[in-house]
Simulated assay, not measured.
Amino acid sequence: MSQVIDVHTHYVPRGWPALSDKDDVPWLRIDSEREATIMVGSKEFRRIADDCWDARVRLADMGGDSVDVQVVSPTPVFFSYDRTPAEGMKIAKIFNDVALEICDPARHRLVPFCQVPLQDPELACEELDRCLAAGHRGVEIGNHVGDRDLDDSGIVMFLQHCAQVGAPVFVHPWDMPTSPRLNRWMSQWLTGMPAETHLSLLAMILGGVFDRLPETLKICFAHGGGSFAFWLGRLENAWYERQDLVGVSEKPPSQYTGRFSVDSVVFNPASLRLLVDVVGVENIMLGSDYPYPLGERPVGQVVRQAEFLSDTDKERLLGGNAESFLSLPARQEV
């Protein structure tokens, strides 16, 4: 019997050493014993609570949602890809070490993923290796570094290294474009995040990344892969009709859907059914975006209530696929 594994959760420490002498770096304003606010310079970024840093709170919530294991990844605002490589490395080390401390009270249930200075692929490989040796099981990366998408040669080199060392990769959208039209109604999160993930999957396919990377690479895209599943038909049509501009991958786009996974945090059965139809039940893993307000609670309710899924398929989505992705042993029945 598989464990129930949530592959998409985040942490924020309850404080960290000074990251830089510059005035635009993230810091934490402590508002009460259980509440705080992530600040970027003088601006509020996000209000958070102790479920971001307190293992006891996380474990209680996991118990309430019948979740056995969480993958605990960085909050993307801390990626710091716009810093110098040295600064990015310093910041990554600080947060990666604190992540181990947060997960330490329940090592068998809280699985840490590290961050790396992706702006410098060699340093990124170095930090990944250090973190794997220290107890991290994989890595979370942003979906781009400035104008460099996932088909950038340096990022591809890093992904090749992940495949070589067997590190699963979780890709999370971040640093969405801003404009007066996007600054209302959380539109950066509601339209920008799905579009960012869609664009990066296009880069992986049309940029020839899947053609160059070994099939052993384990890579998962957040938020159900963004808008990719809904628009795969449009992409496929363009690949055939505009070979001069779009038909640049070795195979049609639909032939790559088995090369990556997505999480299940799409919030309604119709969307989940589309994911199953497009990417396959074997390539979807439970995700919640815990503990943030746009996440799914109770965790896994859409999967559990999906009438079109068989019991076997539900078990795969709730944990079986993630056990393979993370190389975890299956739970033993007593």
Rank of each mutant, 00 (worst) to 15 (best):
G258M: 13
V276Y: 10
Y256C: 05
R273F: 15
N268G: 10
P252I: 05
L245G: 12
V278H: 12
V262E: 07
S254M: 09
T257N: 02
V262R: 01
V279L: 13
L245W: 13
Y256H: 07
P252W: 06
R259P: 01
S264N: 02
N268S: 08
S249N: 10
V248T: 14
L275N: 01
Y256R: 03
Y256F: 14
S271W: 00
D263P: 08
K251T: 03
V279T: 03
R259I: 04
F260D: 01
S264R: 01
L245P: 11
V276K: 15
T257P: 03
V262A: 04
K251D: 01
S254Q: 10
L274E: 08
P252L: 10
K251Q: 12
F260H: 02
P253W: 08
V276S: 14
Y256M: 05
D263I: 08
S261Q: 00
S261N: 12
E250M: 09
F267S: 08
F267N: 05
F267D: 13
P269W: 12
R259D: 00
L272I: 10
F260C: 08
E250W: 03
L275I: 11
T257D: 07
L245E: 13
D263W: 01
P269C: 14
S264H: 02
V265K: 04
P252R: 13
P253R: 01
V262Y: 00
L272K: 07
S261A: 10
P252K: 09
V265W: 03
R273M: 15
S264V: 02
D277A: 15
V246Q: 13
V265R: 00
S261V: 03
K251Y: 11
V266E: 00
V279Y: 04
S249L: 09
D277W: 08
N268P: 03
S271A: 00
T257R: 06
A270R: 07
N268W: 11
Y256T: 06
R259L: 03
Q255H: 15
R259Q: 01
N268R: 08
L275E: 01
P253K: 05
S264M: 08
P269V: 13
P252E: 01
Y256W: 02
V266Y: 02
K251A: 01
L245Q: 13
V278S: 15
G247R: 09
V278Q: 13
Q255S: 15
V266R: 02
V248G: 06
A270C: 05
Y256Q: 03
F260M: 04
V276R: 15
T257W: 07
G258Y: 08
N268H: 06
L272A: 10
V266F: 07
L272F: 13
